[in-house]
Design a binder for these strands. Structure first.
Lengths: 235, 235
DNA sequence: CGCGCTGTCAAACGCGCGTTTTAAACAACC
DNA sequence: GGTTGTTTAAAACGCGCGTTTGACAGCGCG
């Protein structure tokens, strides 16, 4: 109780998290045994229950570690002047960070699993994606202030879907279109940007508001328009 | 060997597959125990090993059943005359069949799990998506014969991504944009169609071929153009 | 009826799991 | 060196898992 004497070795902790991350990413929480983990980490079976209370706490730590790694790679400020430029920056940040080979691959996968197998730690996943999604829809709203809120949300969700899907299910695309040459990350980014921009430019705005129908969406749109106008004035 | 005497009861088989489908969809292969399944089915523990050889064979049968259900719901012929019409039909068929409440929900989920946890039965998933993806990219190619093969493939993959993502990760969209009103299936279909069509119209074709650069993609594009021209002539 | 076959059931087997226990090795301070 | 607290190691525990067993009921048929 006197002083934190721990000068020696939380190195086992690190090796456990790393090994656990790799195997959890591959086989999931239920498909992974503590003996698998400790064997890969070169540690004893009891080490998991010593350093973490139990298997689930280790799993939670693994997810937290993955979360930190991805957030660190993804939260750079946007510098571009035009909305189009910021849009491109966002897409690039998303995909570059997800595909960055210098970060261990399990960090992306282990979090992606939560999408299908929600454990109590799923909120980390939400916290991870929400700010990016928010910046995305906001940027898109600056480009098309005339679109309805729902149109923007659905469009932004579509862009996120495109990125997430490729990261996690790229192999499926490969198998769906076997004749297609695999796109490089740069080509993919370029395509997502161009595709989305083309769609965004071409989308039809909802009928003018202030009329007799669609009161809810029109109210939201009106507010958004006011906000956009305010932002323009401030800048 | 004389005659198929089985007049009595393969009803337990059915109850097992149904119960197993529900629990597999919820907890995955490793997270589900035979005792869970047999209890929900109102059968004995040994029934799984009697009717199927082991747990994995039951899982395979569950996947096969889900596969049949979805294929039956999705493989209707396209009747529309214009490519836009057929495009809309395809999107509608994809999402309507995936969200059809008259089909048990586990059929969709249990197959979707294979995307993250590939088991040896994963090929079913590919066979499921490939024909739709093929029809999709072909229809899109008819609308824009000037686009490169890779552009079309990426665009089609984007559309599939949009649909699949919403089916499996709709809850994430809900959490990303909590302020957004949840889109009804019809609104979603409408948006995916309009968004994709707008993008498809706005995409820039690659620089004219026959020049000195990009030989591969240009060759493919040239072939596609020839095919499209041929199709037009035949029709 | 006796016989063979199908399907069900309770009970048990063996194994691997997560976890606990116990003791020893180690490092820092007196 | 002795003491104290931290970290590792080996072995064991209890439990739930997938699977197997053996007995038994229903049923068509000679």
């Amino acid at each position: 109780m006197h002083r934190p004497r721990r000068l020696k070795a939380p190195v086992t902790r690190e090796k456990l998290i790393e090994a656990a991350g790799e195997i959890f990413a591959e086989k999931g929480l239920h498909g992974t045994s503590i003996r698998d983990i400790t064997q890969r980490a070169g540690a004893n079976v009891a080490s998991v229950n010593y350093h973490f209370h139990d298997k689930f706490e280790l799993y939670a730590q693994v997810l937290r570690r993955a979360h930190e790694g991805i957030v660190a790679a993804m939260s750079r400020p946007l510098t571009a002047k035009t909305p189009e430029g910021r849009f491109r920056e966002l897409i690039t940040a998303m995909l570059k960070s997800a595909l960055d080979p210098s970060r261990p691959k399990w960090q992306t996968r282990v979090l992606g699993r939560e999408l299908f197998q929600p454990t109590p730690v799923l909120d980390l996943m939400y916290d991870l994606v929400r700010p990016t999604a928010h910046r995305l829809s906001q940027t898109m709203g600056e480009m098309r202030p005339d679109l309805s809120f729902q149109q923007l949300t659905l469009a932004a969700a579509g862009v996120v879907a495109r990125a997430v899907f490729h990261v996690y299910h790229g192999h499926l695309v490969q198998r769906m279109f076997p004749a297609a040459p695999e796109a490089t990350p740069d080509e993919l980014i370029e395509h997502v940007v161009e595709f989305s921009l083309a769609a965004l430019r071409g989308l039809q705005a909802p009928p003018a508001c202030g009329q007799n129908h669609r009161p809810r969406s029109c109210r939201a749109t009106a507010k958004r328009r006011a906000n956009a106008a305010h932002a323009r004035r401030v800048r």
